[in-house]
Nucleic acid binder design. Sequence first.
DNA 1: TTATTTCTACCTGTTTTCAGGTATTTTTGC
DNA 2: GCAAAAATACCTGAAAACAGGTAGAAATAA
Lengths: 211, 211
Amino acid sequence: MLIDPATLAIVDDHPIVLEGLQKLLNNVKSIQITGCFTSGMAFMSFLKENKVDVLLLDITLPDANGIELCREVKAISPETHVLALSNHSERSMILQMIQNGATGYLLKNISSEELVACIQEALSGMITFSRGAKEIMARPSISELKGIPQLTKREKEILQLIADGKTTPDIAQQLNLSPLTVETHRKNLIQKFQVRNVAALIKVAAQQGLL
Amino acid sequence: MLIDPATLAIVDDHPIVLEGLQKLLNNVKSIQITGCFTSGMAFMSFLKENKVDVLLLDITLPDANGIELCREVKAISPETHVLALSNHSERSMILQMIQNGATGYLLKNISSEELVACIQEALSGMITFSRGAKEIMARPSISELKGIPQLTKREKEILQLIADGKTTPDIAQQLNLSPLTVETHRKNLIQKFQVRNVAALIKVAAQQGLL
DNA sequence: TTATTTCTACCTGTTTTCAGGTATTTTTGC
DNA sequence: GCAAAAATACCTGAAAACAGGTAGAAATAA
């Protein structure tokens, strides 16, 4: 008994890459390439009509950015496994792709065997990385982790409430404090993070994983 | 010629877990357990005096939370590979740990062989997940990906600038627009995201990876 | 016990945001 | 070419945030 081969699509604005990947994957029985696209829009209209099990997605595209495209794909077709295929080797980029629903991240220097293995792993419902990507992920940039101001318990608490959209009077009431006290904490937070206002405060706090 | 065994420490508030892990890893020649701790503080003072190659870290601790502890560990000792060892099976939790410098995430139902394999993988400088964690990572919650408002180019641009701490007048000047126009965009952003103010706006935008 | 940090609270005045609209001009998609 | 979407711009008044302070009480660490 034969199982249906998995359907695979590729989005990459370099035709050469498309060619190469097709040749490479054509020998693989368990995978059937059902579409190659050089733009995000073209793929999206294809996806609305066809089932796609795996998508190999380049991040840099002419019409849209890959991160957003990935999210759109998963929103329409959650069962499609999106594998980012990119030259970008920044940890933050990989994390962003994963956060936006990618099932894996492959650097373009990947070997053909590894590529097939990663596709199989994705098909079996697991996140997957190419060797290079795994190494990048294991090396957090020091700058990301240092320079994080030490917050007191109260400050963390208030930071959370601010991030939830609460205003100073709201917070004061909720914590049984004077609004003036809350204002002080808010000011201290802004000072500790060396930012100009809450918007920037929340951004850096979020980026450091404090929310 | 023998290579020095890797040093490993464990932080977990359940003594039973510590016992179990010790027994389990004692047979492994390439790993030497150099410390077991039931609190974050105890480990941190140990870390200041001793080299630790791998740390098995429970996320729920009495004195500190594991996410912050992980960051502190990496800040002091970037070469220490922190492997989260936890029962928490939420995707967001795993992502947060990774974002805060963890080299991997293991669910506590991990088998002993898998545990050793993951430790080896971490030691070789790659990120690693237990099988269960890989499966969780591959399944983004639909709620994370849906409900993301469609933003126009201008709105994205202004959202970025707001997140950078720019005020309406700043942005207006930078983009050669009337402040009133910027205000309109800002209002539309708040409406599209269904939030009360910029603080909440930036939080959700950051969480959806838009910044 | 002392020193330090944290939490609390206050004051003044200015700037910015936000709510709740309306409305014209460009783009863009079909 | 027409409709829809996007970008532009305006108005008012209230609420909130921010800058730049000071300062006492309480908790914590040395």
